[in-house]
Each structure stands twice: as structure tokens, then as C-alpha cells.
Nucleic acid binder design. Structure first.
Lengths: 199, 199
DNA sequence: CCGAAAACTTGCGGGTCCCGCACCTTTCCA
DNA sequence: TGGAAAGGTGCGGGACCCGCAAGTTTTCGG
């Protein structure tokens, strides 16, 4: 990888990181593009060469994380069933086993899901991720992303499960382990979300 | 309902309708807030008293449609299972039985899901709808939207299924009946999305 | 029916955003 | 090593969105 591309990636990371950090610190409305650019050591004009909006810069790291999940699903051994692979890949990312998740990530998600101006872009990012996840699933199941409804359906359902689990975790009063919630959500989805018996 | 509220609702409808129509006709970038306001017979400033952005105005009708779905789930007879109710409510909205769906709606969805500046707001709107749907499901299943993961999980899964079905329908080359796709998607989700046997 | 209060509309002004364009600097590669 | 390609920057402008302070319409109690 040449110097050129390395610098670009570095600048991109610096910008998205600065955007997220500043927005968490002061609130989105108190952060100008100018501030983000300054914090990353580039001109304001350059900011918009990398991201087309503040929101996109902030959600950029969320996208990276999601890509990682799709990648992991792809790497899982074929001896597993699809749902086993998905569950394991998801847990590898969300089950922190005892310790708390990265506080920076927590603050980021909390910001993106609460600030009205960010929610849309956040969901859009999730949607992009689901597209990649669908590709991975299509590969695994030998289905066709364009012709078959199946891979996108699974990807969307998985995305929904993780989203709900995360949201529940963020608002739960005594915050239990996030991994457990993700497992619970995915298991229920894979079981067809049977109506709870009103015993 | 007083004269005041009636007029307000009328203005709101006029604005969102004008926004959608103009955007479909000329493309989003060739429509100014000024144009929308003019088409609805109010001042530009008034536009932003009703909607906080062009995107919100356009997606407003999508929200209305979604609310209707949640409402219908609520009204279904309790003799049905939850999934029966959901399926019937969804089909009542999406199965046009033979005839083609409202071309205005089709154009609207196509616009909202293709124009980058609208996708975020579109998903945000869907998310709002899912929240209401979750309430309806919680009511039906005597679960708690805040404490239990179940109702939101179902709502999100249903939203995902409808979204995928719609998207598939929009891009399918010989466009089959939308109702069939929605039925198929919801049925698969309710069955736990079993991995297709690689027969 | 009336008059004040409440609600809505509108114009103005300003801060911000985002992009096209042209110019300059840096990196690449033959 | 020198031209080509790509990235960074400043300028300028169109558009957006909101606060504010009138002005106007609807409401409602007496």
C-alpha cells in the first residue's frame, strides 16, 4: 500500500474519530465542521472530500464494525449451520465476557441512536452493512442475492435482532451482559419468534 | 375537530403531497423548499413549521401508511394467532389482488429508497412505525415493550420482511404480485428462516 | 356578540452546511 | 528525474433551517 493511500486512510480515521469524540463531548449542535477539520489537522474544505456530512463521518466507524461482522460470518467453518455461524460471529463481536464493552463504542451508539439528526444516517449505515451480510449469507447458502429473497431476509432479521438487543441493553436499568441479549434475540429469531404462551 | 386543526392537517397534507409529487417529477435536487411551499400555497417559512426538512415532508406519507398497519393489527380478532393477524393486516395493505398498486405510492417508495438523501429519513420513518407496531404486538401478547425484548423483535422482523419484499418487488424484472412476496417473506420469518436444503 | 388570549403565518436575518471550481502541492511511476 | 495523476485548499455561492418579532386568524368565556 503506497504512502498516498495510507495517508488518506489515516486522515479519514482522524476525521471520523474527531467527529465522534467532539459530538459526544459537547453535543452534536455544538460541533462545527470547522472544529472537526481543525481537530484532524486539515482544512474544512477537505472534510467534505471525505464525508458528505457530519453524520456520515460519525457513523463511519459503525460501518467499519459492521463490515467486520460480515467478514467473520464468511470465515466461519462450513461445518457449522448458518445460524450457528451467525450467532458465533455476533457473539465474537458483542460478548465481552464479564468486562464492559468499550465505553467509546457505547457512547457512540448512544449518541447515534438518540440524536435525531444522526438516527437516519445510523440506520442507513446499518442498511449498508446488511447488504454485505446478505452477500456473505448468499455465499454460504448458495443462494442468489438478486433473485432469492432469502439471504436479504436473514440479513435484515439479524440486523433487527442486534439492533433491538443493543437498544435494550442501552436502556436497561441494571445493564446485564450484552452478549446474553444478543444471543437471546438471535435465538428467538431463528426459532421463528413463537408467540409466548400466556400460561 | 375545530376549524384550526382541520386547516393545519390540510396544510400538512398539501405540503407533503407537493413535496413528493415535485420530487418524483423533477428529481429531488431540482426542488426547492420554496417550490414546495408555493405549490401548497404557504410561505417558505411556514414549511419549516410543519417539517424540519424536505426529507421529512416526503416520508411523512410513508409514516401514515405504516401507522395504519399497526392500527389494523390492533383491530384483528383475538381468535387469530399473532402471526395470522400480522399476515392478514399486511396483506390487507399490500395485496392488491390482480390490480397494480397505486402508481403514486410505487413512485414514492422507489424515490425514497433510491435517493441517497432520502434513504436515511425513510429508514427513520420505518423505525418510528416499528415502534408503534411493537406497542400493538405488546398489547396482543400481553408483554411489556420496555422490559421484554419480544414485541420489538417481532416488530423489527416484520418491518424487515416487508422492506425486503417491497425492495425485491421494485427491482424484479417481471414484477409479480407484491402480496405474494410479502406473504412469502413473513411466512419465512415466522418459520425461523430455516437454511434452504442444498438438495 | 365582543374582546382578550392563544395559536398560526410570515418576513427577516444569520449561522451553517455542502459543493463546484480553479489553483497549488505532493506523490507516483516510467 | 520529469511529467502525469491525485489530493489539499481557498473562494464563492446556493440552499437549508431556525430564532425572533411582528401581524393575522381562530377560539372561547362572559
Amino acid at each position: 500500500m503506497g504512502l498516498r493511500e495510507r495517508k488518506k486512510l489515516e486522515t479519514r480515521r482522524a476525521l471520523s474519530w474527531a467527529a465522534l469524540r467532539l459530538a459526544v463531548e459537547r453535543g452534536l449542535d455544538n460541533v462545527l465542521v470547522e472544529d472537526i477539520a481543525a481537530a484532524a489537522g486539515v482544512s474544512p474544505r477537505t472534510f467534505n472530500n471525505y464525508f458528505s456530512s457530519k453524520a456520515e463521518a460519525i457513523t463511519s466507524r459503525h460501518v467499519d464494525r459492521g463490515r467486520h461482522l460480515a467478514e467473520q460470518v464468511r470465515r466461519r467453518p462450513r461445518t457449522e449451520s448458518l445460524w450457528e455461524s451467525i450467532l458465533e460471529a455476533a457473539l465474537a463481536q458483542y460478548d465481552t465476557g464479564g468486562t464492559l464493552p468499550d465505553p467509546e463504542w457505547t457512547a457512540g451508539v448512544r449518541l447515534m441512536t438518540s440524536e435525531p439528526a444522526l438516527i437516519g444516517e445510523f440506520l442507513r449505515a446499518s442498511s449498508m452493512i446488511e447488504r454485505e451480510l446478505a452477500e456473505a449469507i448468499a455465499e454460504r447458502t448458495r443462494t442468489d442475492v438478486r433473485a432469492d429473497i432469502y439471504p436479504r431476509l436473514v440479513a435484515a432479521a439479524v440486523g433487527a435482532a442486534i439492533e433491538v438487543a443493543t437498544d435494550q441493553w442501552l436502556t436497561a436499568d441494571p445493564p446485564g451482559p450484552l452478549g446474553d441479549l444478543v444471543r437471546e434475540a438471535l435465538t428467538q429469531v431463528a426459532a421463528g419468534l413463537p408467540e409466548p404462551s400466556t400460561a
